[in-house]
Amino acid sequence: MKMKFFRSALQTNQTSVSEFVLQGFSDLSWQLQLFLFVFFLVIYIVALLGNSIIVFLATTSPSLHTPMYFFLGNFSFSEICYISTTVPKMLVNFLAKDRSMSFISCAGQLYFFSLLGVADCFLLAIMALDRYVAICYPLRYSIIMRWRLCIELAATSWIIGLMVAFGHTLFIFRLPFCDSNIINHFFCDLPAVIKLACGNTYGSEVSVFLAGVFAALIPCLLILFSYARILGTILRMHSVGGKQKTFSTCASHLISVSLFFGTAISIYVCPNSSHSAESGRILSLLYCVITPFLNPFIYTLKNKEVKGALKKLLGSK
Rank of each mutant, 00 (worst) to 15 (best):
I265V: 13
L175D: 12
Y69S: 03
M237Y: 04
A119I: 10
I160F: 03
H65P: 02
F112D: 00
I234N: 03
Q244F: 03
V92K: 11
Y227C: 02
H275Y: 11
F247Y: 11
K243G: 12
S180W: 06
N74T: 04
I80V: 12
L314F: 12
H253A: 06
V306T: 10
I194N: 09
L294I: 09
S142V: 04
Y111S: 08
T15R: 02
H65L: 05
A215H: 00
N74D: 08
S252H: 05
V87Y: 05
I265R: 07
L57V: 01
K245G: 02
P176D: 10
T59W: 13
R281D: 08
I218K: 00
I151W: 14
V38C: 11
F75N: 04
Y268V: 06
S84G: 15
Q11W: 01
T15D: 11
K311Y: 07
G117F: 11
L222S: 14
N200D: 15
F40M: 06
N200V: 09
L28V: 01
T86H: 05
G212R: 11
V21T: 12
C198A: 15
S78Q: 13
V257K: 05
G117S: 14
T86C: 11
L222A: 15
V46H: 08
P271I: 04
A197W: 07
K89F: 07
L286W: 07
V55I: 09
R174G: 02
F177G: 10
H238S: 14
C250S: 07
T156K: 02
A128W: 07
L123G: 03
F261H: 09
H168T: 12
S274P: 00
F166K: 14
I160P: 01
S316V: 01
L224F: 14
Y111V: 01
F247V: 06
R146K: 14
P67M: 00
S266W: 00
G167N: 13
F187T: 05
S18V: 01
G199T: 05
K245S: 09
F293N: 08
L95C: 12
I230F: 03
E205K: 14
